[in-house]
């Protein structure tokens, strides 16, 4: 590899990691939006994955091959815990209840010294990389794509369009909802573990209200017709601030203006297409 190319990859390494991690987070919000659930616990799940994996690595010295799959355990446990009660909620009520979860956890990280308090956890070794991040992203995309084209995907779409009708059609709505929430927790937990193991430091303020809204915006900008759409949305929103560095003081202004224009002209997302399915109508 010529040195300039080496420099190039070094320079953008973190950005490339962030694109992959945010892609996973976009899929995490996609799976709940795809069943018509405005559940915004992704940042909280990501935090649980990040903190639990960092503690496994730092305090228990476990190998990453074990830590990565284990990082889903805590988020999934929480998803099961909140699943029953919160799934009765809908729309913005569910959104706020799940954002509330993130804020409660933030207070827990801050008040318990074992989690490092405000200082967070630092010195996390770099164990993840392009391979693990993009491998998982590709696998998640493939699985969701296949599910989307199957009868499960059709049921999900039915729930999204009209929940009552879906129920009448014999779709077990609560089971799908819980399944989506668990899948969302797994994806976000993995994203948290991966990001913790590429950036050496995690802090309590990275998983609250603002990241929850940012993750939602990935899917809103990209669209939720296909799994690739929210990932594209995540990539655009992650790249924009870096592409706009030349604008200095006004880069956040343009960042916002570009989002406004994109949504005004493409209100269903940048990729508004739906998955094609064969077989029974």
């Amino acid at each position: 590899m010529p040195p300039w190319l080496d420099d190039f990859f070094w320079t953008y390494q973190n950005l490339v990691y962030a694109l992959g991690v945010n892609g996973l987070l976009a899929l995490s919000i996609y799976v709940v939006l795809a069943v018509g659930q405005l559940s915004l616990g992704q940042a909280a799940f990501m935090g649980l994955g990040a903190y639990s994996s960092a503690i496994m690595t730092l305090k228990f010295k476990l190998p990453f091959l074990l830590v990565l799959p284990a990082s889903c355990i805590v988020p999934v446990a929480f998803a099961l815990l909140i699943g029953g009660p919160t799934l009765r909620l809908s729309g913005v009520y569910l959104a706020i209840a799940t954002i509330g979860l993130g804020e409660v956890l933030r207070a827990v990280y801050l008040n318990i010294d074992w989690f490092g308090g405000a200082l967070g956890l630092s010195g996390i070794p770099e164990r993840a990389g392009i391979g693990s991040i993009y491998g998982l992203l590709a696998a998640a995309l493939a699985v969701l794509w296949i599910i989307g084209r199957s009868h499960i995907g059709r049921a999900m779409e039915a729930m999204r369009t009209d929940e009552t009708a879906a129920e009448v059609m014999g779709i077990n709505v609560p089971r799908y909802r819980l399944g989506a929430l668990l899948a969302s927790a797994v994806l976000a937990g993995l994203a948290g573990a991966l990001s913790a193991h590429v950036s050496s430091f995690i802090g309590p303020n990275e998983y609250g209200f603002e990241p929850a809204v940012t993750i939602l915006s990935f899917a809103l900008l990209g669209g939720i017709g296909t799994p690739i759409a929210p990932v594209l949305g995540a990539w655009i929103l992650t790249l924009l601030p870096e592409l706009l560095r030349g604008l200095a003081d006004f880069r956040l202004v343009f960042n916002g203006v570009i989002i406004v224009i994109a949504v005004l002209f493409l209100p269903n997302g940048i990729l508004p297409f739906r998955l094609r399915r064969h077989g029974r109508p």
């Binding site: 915006s217 956040l252 202004v253 916002g256 406004v260 994109a262």
Partner: peptide
């Protein structure tokens, strides 16, 4: 989403 972009700007 559109109000999110606008408020950032």
């Amino acid at each position: 989403m559109v109000t999110l972009g606008a408020v950032l700007a």
